[in-house]
Design a protein around this nucleic acid. Structure first.
Lengths: 143, 143
DNA sequence: GTGCCACTTCAAGTCGACTTGAGGTCAAGA
DNA sequence: TCTTGACCTCAAGTCGACTTGAAGTGGCAC
């Protein structure tokens, strides 16, 4: 069984068939040929999909990922880009840590109202001043 | 100057007027009255906006935030909800930290191709198995 | 040979958080 | 008084990453 059909790829990768078609349309993956109408994929597409999942998890957009794959066959991943993304993640992590600590405090704070808690007011000021960036929403569960 | 007009609120909070109207429509903030057509806001709206910014930064959706404000005037912030969100953040932080370390390694890795680097392949497997959740996109800069 | 149904295409819809645009109103300064 | 332009409303558009739906096709088990 050299080639995989879309259902098999979906099964092995956990990526829905609709998404696989979408990815192909976007140039993120390629089907090798067709059996009739049906796409056939080489097993290597699974590694490609893992790479895409990794990129997404690291915060890259599909377009950025497509650009990494762009030049040639082997993913040309720019080390500088990786380092930059690591930096960005690090900043995010620091913000989130502060937020987590603030939330923990607020959850445990004995002040009758949060508004009377100095710690809460401090985080509040940080949020108001934009010191803390938003994070957008998570990818829906199961994706 | 007891009341603030929308431009003043925008200036002091950094939140665009269009967003303030949007928030009012969603019930997140309220204008006290009108001078002609124009909304007038009490200064307290600024604290409200800070609270909203905080909630957003912590990862709450506008609807969730609205629900916290819902019951009465004083924000009724459920301590359990805060603790839960803190937990969630903590999970995210751990994932992001792993990802950051992985990216750092990949950026510095001497292997000719990332595919030949065991560390890279390990993260890749983690991403493929869905052990690492996506993060959605950041709120656009300046928001 | 034939029927089923997994696959196909293409367009449109979804979700959240806003922004933008068209067309209208009106408070205030000249 | 007149003009200006900041404000108003309401509908529609945007963005990214997909999903959904309708209508069609054809591989394969029987």
């Amino acid at each position: 069984m050299r080639y995989l059909d879309i259902a098999e790829v979906a099964r092995q990768s956990g990526v829905p068939a609709s998404t696989l078609r979408f990815y192909e349309e976007k140039g993120l993956i390629a089907s090798t040929g067709r059996r009739g109408l049906r796409r056939l994929f080489e097993p290597g597409v699974l590694e490609r999909l893992a790479l895409i999942a990794l990129g997404r998890a690291a915060g890259f957009s599909l377009d950025e990922i497509a650009r990494m794959f762009a030049s040639e066959g082997r993913p040309r991943i720019d080390r500088q880009m990786l380092a930059a993304k690591a930096e960005e993640l690090d900043r995010t992590i620091r913000e989130l840590s502060a937020m987590r600590d603030g939330l923990r405090h607020a959850a445990a704070c004995p002040a009758p109202s949060h508004m009377e808690c100095p710690t809460f007011r401090r985080i509040l000021r940080a949020a108001a001043s934009g010191a803390i960036g938003g994070r957008g929403k998570k990818v829906p569960p199961g994706s």
